[in-house]
Nucleic acid binder design. Structure first.
Lengths: 295, 295
DNA sequence: TCACTATGTAAGTTGAGATTACATATGGAG
DNA sequence: CTCCATATGTAATCTCAACTTACATAGTGA
């Protein structure tokens, strides 16, 4: 398309608004500009095109035949543009906000806070998908993932939310004086895991332990897991930030702590987020804990 | 049409150019802006619409499905706009410049000077319509009229070109000592008129003379008229500016002079002139004689 | 590994588009 | 015919969207 020969789009828009409304005051209102701006744009358009589009012989401005012709073409053109824009913005607006995160994170961090987000943005419909799986983020699919890791997922943008090492914890009663000096020692204990995850097995594998568990493997809903850990029913993997108070109070002991800089991140596809997602990300940022690594 | 919800037209234009060309450098070339401007406009459009229109996962920017959808709608829209604009500018550009004036003016003032205009603007095709009729100026019809009068034609714009009173002239030989003290006296003389006009009859009527001519009525082409007047073949109506030198040299005598402020004017419809007409008007203005009434 | 190319970004610039304030012209009502 | 309301036009000035410039980053092929 030869863009060079088109008049300025602003003057075409002003003309189209004038043609729709019939006078420069209403055309200005339609575009949220003064009538003087419309008047100047109409004059500039006629000058650019070298065609008389308007009849100024009476008190009211009217269109010439050429002006009527141009107005019809602009009506078609701008309508097609508006329809295409509305198709996308309407469909985007209607789809609920999809957020995925691990069940532990949902239970320990997100759900207790989510009431505030719901109160602030009641118009944002939301689908929370608690899964330990690394869900691919596609357009029309998941908007935001809250993931634990180093933050460098290829092809995705991420920003830190909560930085805290992973930790294996147990109640002192469970340990009962037994010394745990290697991950291998943990195979004799019962393990507590959240439903739908395999965090215990993953952790052990990441530490080089290939033998199967000798103790029981107990799966519980997220909200009951930490209570069971405190009750001495097994060992569990958690994130230090979630058990900080229990450790401080002596209710739990940290058997192993991962000394690295991993943490939870807000992860999304590169590029611009749709409005609901932007609101959610902004809200998450306001709830970052103070132990975020300083820059 | 709801203009408020449309993104800025500049960003839609940038997106459309990108969709056509496939990369931001060529899109910039198409719009005569830098690639950075395109990049920023694309980002702004995604932000405004809250939709991911572009896939940035590889080295080359590509369109998402939503982006393809929008691109099709913009292609339709901008094409319709371009077609409407081109219909008018092409037809306007192709039509010759139509100028109308009295034959006398054409012969005495315009034709001798027109070679310069032709040389300056060879690309401007021109139709000269020499008629004494007051031709209506309509779009697609006459662009410029060069008229003699007071300059106040309703519904038209005019600006003075040559201000000079009308004058009745004859050669001294024709008069042969006869005294002419009233227009009635002129009825005994032969009258010279330019082909296609009735200027003599009009002048006599305007002076209150109702009787028919007793002398001969000789019609000649414009270029021969003044030579015939100088040769003593009859009386003629002219404009003082055209016969100034003959009067000064004694070749002609002024029998009657209209003492008013009328003159030739550049007359056109209100509003913007198309480019050829503007050039012609500007050229005419450069050729105004020095006896234009000072402001 | 290096070089080329495509795209992104931040800081600064600028002129198109707008506002403001007033002027002018038309037409209807009294 | 006069007056008033309204529609439009214009000039001076302002402002910020759009752009440029300069450089950075990332992907990919040789």
């Amino acid at each position: 398309m030869e863009w060079f020969n088109l008049p300025p789009l602003a003057s075409l828009r002003a003309f189209s608004a004038f043609a729709e409304t019939g006078n420069v005051v209403q055309a200005g209102a339609a575009l949220n500009v003064s009538h003087a701006a419309i008047s100047q744009q109409l004059r500039a358009l006629e000058r650019h095109m070298g065609v008389a589009l308007l009849d100024r012989s009476g008190r009211n401005l009217t269109l010439t035949n050429e002006g009527e012709h141009l107005a019809r073409g602009l009506q078609l053109g701008f309508s097609a543009i508006q329809t295409a824009v509305q198709d996308l913005t309407a469909s985007g607006a209607a789809r609920p906000l999809h957020v995925t995160c691990t069940p532990m994170f949902a239970a320990q961090w997100l759900m207790p806070r989510l009431a505030e987000f719901r109160a602030l943005y009641p118009e944002v419909d939301m689908v929370l998908d608690p899964t330990g799986e690394l869900v691919e983020l596609t357009p029309g699919g998941i908007d935001i993932a809250l993931r634990y890791g180093a933050g460098d997922w290829p092809g995705l943008d991420s920003q830190p939310l909560l930085q805290s090492p992973m930790v294996v914890v147990a109640a002192p009663d469970l340990l009962d004086g037994r010394r745990v000096t290697s991950p291998q020692d943990l195979l004799d204990f019962p393990w507590l895991e959240e439903l739908g995850t395999t965090e215990a097995a993953k952790w052990l594998t990441s530490r080089g332990v290939d033998d199967a568990l000798r103790g029981a493997r107990i799966r519980l809903p997220g909200n009951l897991l930490m209570e069971a850990v405190r009750g001495g029913q097994g060992v569990a993997v958690s994130v230090r930030a979630f058990v900080e108070e229990d450790l401080r109070a002596g209710r739990l002991e940290a058997l192993f702590t991962e000394e690295d800089t991993r943490g939870y991140h807000i992860v999304h596809r590169p590029g611009v987020l749709r409005p609901q997602a932007r609101k959610f990300v902004a809200w998450l940022k306001r709830h970052r804990t103070k132990n975020i690594t300083p820059e």
